[in-house]
């Protein structure tokens, strides 16, 4: 057996005499990676989850004119447990970000994130707002960013194609979800006097303590 496998394949493989007659033209040889990625990239289940104006364009993308189903991505799931793609479509606010992180943690691996629009990418027109997070990538890793306010449906489709390209390049040997050990869980941010990124809690504590030592400079610039 191993001998056969190690032999280089002839160029007219389908007609190779070693392949039984009934299997000819029905056998394809590929790498496991390719097969795995080919299946995955055309059956993404996005999460049914919109935040703001960009979600309206996301719905328009799923509707008949732009028809997401052509790419095999139309099955929007309302439960994060069944989804493997999160489209962050809209402004990420401080009040909402704990929920987004929690939803992300609940999604099983492999999972992907598309940051749709200026707001999800970097805060967009509302960046200076006191309740706005300057981009979802401050908390969760993002695979594809789309510009626009809102991005057109075509731009969203483009991001799907880009994500497919990304998936194609992944290899079973290196993907994080087959590595031993626990899944990475992102600590859920806390809504205290302001939004607290718990990964920075120690730093915040020290800085705030140092601030308490000195007389507070007024915010007046």
């Amino acid at each position: 057996m191993s001998e056969t496998v190690n032999q280089p394949l002839p160029s007219d493989f389908p007609n190779d005499p070693r392949v039984p007659e009934e299997l000819r033209n029905n056998v394809f040889i590929t790498t496991l990676d390719k097969l795995y990625n080919w299946g995955r990239k055309r059956s993404m289940w996005p999460m049914l989850f919109g935040l703001a104006c960009c979600a309206i364009e996301m719905i328009a993308t799923a509707a008949s004119r732009h028809d997401l189903a052509r790419f095999g991505w139309e099955l929007m799931r309302a439960s994060p447990r069944q989804a493997d793609l999160m489209i962050v479509a809209g402004t990420v606010t401080k009040k909402m970000v704990p929920q987004i992180v929690r939803l992300y943690n609940q999604m099983p691996e492999p999972r992907y994130v598309i940051a749709m629009g200026a707001c999800a990418t970097a805060g967009g027109p509302f960046k200076e707002g006191y309740n706005v997070v300057s981009g979802i990538d401050k908390f969760i890793p993002v695979d594809v960013y789309i510009t626009g306010c809102p991005p057109r449906p075509e731009a969203l489709l483009h991001s799907f194609l880009k994500l497919q390209e990304k998936i194609e390049k992944q290899s079973l040997r290196t993907v994080p979800w087959y590595r031993p050990g626990e899944d990475d869980v992102i600590p859920v941010p806390m809504l205290g006097p302001d939004l607290v990124d718990m990964r920075r809690a120690e730093e915040i504590r020290q800085k705030a303590a140092a601030q308490a030592q000195q007389p507070v400079p007024t915010q007046e610039g």
């Binding site: 302001d194 607290v196 809690a201 120690e202 705030a208 308490a212």
Partner: peptide, 15 residues
């Protein structure tokens, strides 16, 4: 985009 009151201790804060 955050501001905390002086002396704020996130590790011992009951939110």
């Amino acid at each position: 985009n955050v501001n905390y009151p002086p002396g704020f201790d996130p590790l011992n804060f009951h939110a």
